[in-house]
Write a protein that binds this DNA or RNA. Sequence first.
DNA 1: TTGTATGCGTTATCAT
DNA 2: ATGATAACGCATACAA
Lengths: 351, 351
Amino acid sequence: MTPSPPSIKDVAKAANCSIATVSCVLNNRGRIGKATQKRVRDACKKLKYFPSSAGRSLRSSKTETIGIIFYPSCADIFRNIFYSEIMECLENQLTKANYNLLRAGYDISTRKQELLKCIREGCVDGVILMGGCPDDFKHKLSEVPLPFLLLDTDISSGTVDSITSDGFRAMIDMVEYLHGKGHRRMVMFRHRYDNFNETSRCMGFEAATRQLGLEGGCEVLKVETNDEACSEIIQRISGSNPVTAVATVNDDMAADILRKLLAKGIRVPEQVSITGYDDTEFSHDTHPPLTTVGIDRKTMGAEGAKAILRRINDPSLPIHKLTIASELVERESVRELVDPDKPRFHENTQC
Amino acid sequence: MTPSPPSIKDVAKAANCSIATVSCVLNNRGRIGKATQKRVRDACKKLKYFPSSAGRSLRSSKTETIGIIFYPSCADIFRNIFYSEIMECLENQLTKANYNLLRAGYDISTRKQELLKCIREGCVDGVILMGGCPDDFKHKLSEVPLPFLLLDTDISSGTVDSITSDGFRAMIDMVEYLHGKGHRRMVMFRHRYDNFNETSRCMGFEAATRQLGLEGGCEVLKVETNDEACSEIIQRISGSNPVTAVATVNDDMAADILRKLLAKGIRVPEQVSITGYDDTEFSHDTHPPLTTVGIDRKTMGAEGAKAILRRINDPSLPIHKLTIASELVERESVRELVDPDKPRFHENTQC
DNA sequence: TTGTATGCGTTATCAT
DNA sequence: ATGATAACGCATACAA
C-alpha cells in the first residue's frame, strides 16, 4: 500500500548524475546539457518521480498552498449559492497558478481563540477569509505574519487587503430607484449581528433616504428572524401613512419574506414592494421575481485570486483595497406608485 | 510582514535545553522532568512557537492532511445540498482528529490524465473521492499508493474502500411501494453518462419490476435533459395503457421535471406520480412535496471519516465496503390507483 | 533525565 | 556542464 515513493536520489542514480543536476533540470535552473536533461526526464518518468512537497517546503519555506477560511464552517458557506460562484473562480485561478486550496471552517464556538492548525503550523502561504465573521476574528487573523486577504468583507481599521462590493453605493441607487418609482416611506431589514456587508448596505440606505429628505418615514430595522420582519411589515403597511417599499439585506431574506407574506395573503408588489440583494439564482424564481442588486461574482473571485498571489509574491506592497461595482437588477417585485408630490419619471418624459 | 517564525532551536535556547528535549516535551515522548517541561512550555508560549508542518512532514512522512477530491469541481459539488451535509460531518470529524482538509476539484477536461498536484507531491496522507465521476479516474486514483476511500460511489473491481447507500435495495422498496399503490406501468429516468449511484438505483428498479412480473410495461430511459424526460412522460401518459408512475434518479431531477410538467398543465400526482431520490431539503418544498428516498448523510460523513482514518492508521487492513441503508420517505407526489387486477393494500386489510 | 547526532528530500551555493 | 555539500525544522535512536 505504501512503498515509499522515489526520491531525488533514486532519480539521480537512475540518470547517472548527481541530485543537484536532477534538481537543476526539474527547475530549469543552470544550463544542463541536452543529453543529461533527457536522461533525467526519462528517469523521472520511469520512476514516476515527483518532488516531495515536504522537502521543498522545508527548503524553500513555501507550501504552494493557500488557505481559505470560512466562518463558521465550509459547508455553511458552500450551501450559500452566492459564495459557491466566487469559490469556483478562486479555485480555477489558484489551481492554474499551481496552488493547492486548503479550506477550513472556523467555528468560533468550539475553537475559542485558538488559531487554525493550518495557520499555526505554516501549512499555507497565504490566507483568504470569506464571509461575514466577527471583527475580532478578522483582526486576530490579520495579525498573523502571513499574506492575508478579506474577500467580500472588510474591517474598519484598514491595514489589510480586501475586496468588497460597493453595498453603500448600490443601496443609494436602489433607494433612488424606489424613490423614482414613487416610494416615500420605506424600511430596510437587517440582522442584529455585526456584518460588514449588511452594515454598509444599510448605511447606503440611510444616506440616500436622508439625502432625499425622507428620514422621517424611513428606517433600518434589526430583526432576529424573517417572521419578525413580516410582522413589522404587516403592521406598517396599514394605516394612513403606510410603508410602501421594503429593502432587505440579501435575496435569501427577501425570498423568505416574500413566501411568508404571500402565505399571509399579502400581495407583492401590489400591497408592498420588496427588494433583495445579491442576485442569486433563485431570485428570479420567486413570485414575483425579485428586483435586486447584482454583484459580479466572477470578478470577485478572479480579483481575489490575483490579490492574494500578488501579496504572496511581494509582501511589501502597499495595502490594496478593491471595490467591485454592483448594479441594480430590475424585475417585478417593485411597483410603480402614482405619487402626488412629484412628477413621475416616464421613459417618454425624456422626449 | 514575514519575520521567519521561531524554530525548535529558538525554543531550546529560551528553555535552556536541547532541541531533543523540546521535541520530547511537545510530543509527550520520553520522560522529561516536570521543571524542564514547564520551562519548555513557557518558552513555547512566550515565543508563540508551533512546530512547522514542513519539518514534521519531512521527518515523519505524515502530512496530517486529507485530500477530498471532487468531480468535476468543488463548487459544483457544494452547490449540491446533498453533499454539503456529508461534507459537514467529514469536516467535523477529521478536524477533531487534527487533520487539515485539502479540497480539490478534478476537472477532467483541463487536466486530462494528469494526477492532482496534492496527490503527486504527497501533500496528503489519504484521499477521499466524492461524487459521480468516470470510472477510469477512480481506477487511476485507486492505483496511487495512498489510503483511498470512495464516498457515495464505488467501482466494480472492488479493491478499494467505499461507502455507499443502498440504492439497489431502496429502489426495490420504491417499486414495491408504487406497486402497492396500484401502479403497473412505470418508467425510470437516468442520465446517459456513467454513474455508480444512478446505475445501482436503476438496477434496483429493473430487478423489482422483473420480480413483480412488470417487465413489459416498465423500463429505464436514459435522457440528456429533463425536457427530454418531460416529452417522454407526456407521450407515455396518454393512450390506452398509460404509464402512471415515474421514478427519477435524484430529487433535483424530480423537482425540475415536476416544475416543467406543471408548467405544461400536467397535474402531479393526479395524472402521473413522480418519485425522487436523496430527500434533499427542497424535496418538501416542491408542489406537491416529493415522495423520495432518504439517505442518512450524517452517518455517511461520519463513517467516511472513520474509514479513511482507519486505513491511514493501518494500511494493511482488508478492504472495507460499507453500505448505508436508505429509507422511503412518503410524501404526496404518488397517487394511489384503483387497480383492477390486484387486491389493494389497505391498512385495514391487515386486520 | 537529558543531550548528541543523524537523516528525512529538497534547493542553492560554490567548487570543479 | 556538473557535482559535492550545507541548510531548512523536526523526530528519534542512542549515548551519557
